[in-house]
Amino acid sequence: MLHYQGVHHRYGDLVALHDLNLEVAPGEIFGLLGPNGAGKTTAIKIAATLLRPTSGRVLLDGIDVLADPLGAKRRLGLTPDTPFFYGGLTGRQFLRFVGNIREMPSAPLETRIAELMAFFHLDDAADSAILTYSMGMKRKLGLASAVLHRPKVLILDEPTSGLDPHASRDARALLVSLRDAGTTVFLTTHVLQIAQAVCDRVGILDRGRLVAVGSLAELRAREQEDLEDVFVRVTRPGSEESDPA
């Protein structure tokens, strides 16, 4: 469903992604882990058509995102690490805006907005300006706008950052229910517990290289490690997996 094929990207002299090859299967929750500056956000931006890779290509539902960015955008939902909102609009107006841009018919759109507002407990604030929302409420609104059109691929950059424990649990439940409904979820996170709780497979990115990939069971197979141990081992400077040489 989401296929990175030899994706390489550099910012000036800094190489952000080294020849990334990765395939995310349909209906799978894939977690991309990595320390700060590993290249996670760059990988997400390329898949979301916001950044042109130096070389390589990304296929999203069989569509080359470079060749048909609009087609790719119609199929994906995106929540960046710092989502943007028009502060003067109300939550409902913002979701209406996104739904109209996605050309959703009016009646189903209104129903879906009401459904999502209820799910994220934003009903009371639905008709207040976003300017007055807390950080957590904005996060929830960002998630709601990403899943509004029931995308085939959902890309989330740090989806639970800024959420309280209740909202975080709701978000995890949402991801699982989306997966069960056939949506492919590609997320990055620093919170390894979330990866352990919801991801079917994870990849660990370090200094632009994919140093480990597999199901949780596969990654933990060598020793009796938990995900944190694996993460620390493969991303430690000088470790065999992380050494570019």
Binding site: Y86, F97, G99, N100, M104, E110, M117, A126, D127
Partner: peptide, 29 residues
């Protein structure tokens, strides 16, 4: 925004429905 929208309820008919959806979204915003 808030009061007008709230007073008419959440299922209020969106404005400028005669416009194409994307155009309507930008105009309304």
């Amino acid at each position: 925004t808030s009061r007008r929208t709230a007073s008419r309820g959440p299922t209020r008919r969106p404005r400028f429905e005669w416009l194409p959806p994307q155009t309507r979204a930008l105009v309304v915003k």
